[in-house]
C-alpha cells in the first residue's frame, strides 16, 4: 500500500492541572450540537472528565473508536498512589460502560478534533480550558494508506451490532422508499 503524509493531531493532557470544572465537556457538546451552540449536554460530549474527587482523580478522556465487544480482560492501574478503576484510561465506545454514547440513541461518539471549515486553530475543549490542562499539538507522519470508516459507516456498524444486519437493511430500504 502507498505511503501518504498524515497530519497527526494530539491533545496533550496534563491531568495534574485539572481543577475538574468540566468546561471542556460543556463546550464540546455545544460545538457539536445542531445548529451549532444550540444545546448543551455533557453526556453528548466527546471528552469526559473521569471524576473521583476524594481519590484525587480528575482525568480528561477523549472518545475513541467504537467497538462492539468488551475486552477479554481488564486492568487496574495504580499511579502515584492513586488507583484508577478498570477502563478509566480506555477511549473506546464499548458495551461495558455508558460514556461516549449519544444518550437518546446510544450511537457511538468519537472525538473529531472539532474539524471544521475553515479549520479551527485548536479543538474547542483546548480553547476553553483556561488552566492549560489540554494542549494541542500537530505533527506530520508518513503512514500507509488505509480506508477509514467515516462517521456514517461507524454509526451503521454499531446499529448492525445492536439490531442485526437484516433489521438495519430493512429500515434503510423502508426509508429509501419513503423518499
Amino acid at each position: 500500500m502507498a505511503k501518504i503524509k498524515k497530519k497527526v493531531k494530539t491533545i496533550k493532557v496534563d491531568a495534574d492541572k485539572c481543577n475538574g470544572c468540566r468546561g471542556c465537556e460543556i463546550v464540546c457538546s455545544a460545538f457539536h450540537s445542531t445548529p451549532r451552540y444550540s444545546t448543551i449536554n455533557p453526556a453528548r460530549s466527546r471528552i469526559q472528565i473521569i471524576r473521583h474527587p476524594l481519590k484525587d482523580v480528575w482525568l480528561p478522556i477523549f472518545a475513541g473508536e467504537y467497538t462492539p465487544a468488551e475486552c477479554m480482560g481488564r486492568e487496574k492501574y495504580v499511579i502515584d498512589g492513586k488507583e484508577y478503576d478498570e477502563c478509566t484510561f480506555c477511549r473506546a465506545t464499548c458495551p461495558s460502560r455508558d460514556i461516549f454514547k449519544e444518550p437518546d440513541s446510544g450511537l457511538p461518539l468519537k472525538c473529531d478534533m472539532c474539524e471544521d471549515e475553515p479549520p479551527l486553530e485548536q479543538p474547542k475543549c483546548v480553547e476553553w480550558c483556561i488552566n492549560d490542562v489540554l494542549v494541542y499539538e500537530e505533527r506530520e507522519e508518513e503512514v500507509e494508506e488505509s480506508v477509514e470508516m467515516d462517521k456514517v459507516e461507524t454509526g451503521l456498524v454499531s446499529m448492525i451490532d445492536k439490531y442485526g444486519l437484516d433489521k438495519v437493511a430493512e429500515a434503510i430500504a423502508r426509508i429509501s422508499q419513503k423518499d
Binding site: Y37, S38, I40
Partner: peptide, 22 residues
C-alpha cells in the same frame, strides 16, 4: 443524574459573550 439537553436561544451570540468574558 441527568443526560438531557439544555437549550440556548442564540448560541452563537451567547458564545461570543463568553469568549469576551474568557
Amino acid at each position: 443524574r441527568g443526560t438531557k439537553d439544555v437549550n440556548l436561544y442564540n448560541g452563537e451570540a451567547f458564545m461570543k459573550e463568553m469568549k469576551d468574558m474568557m
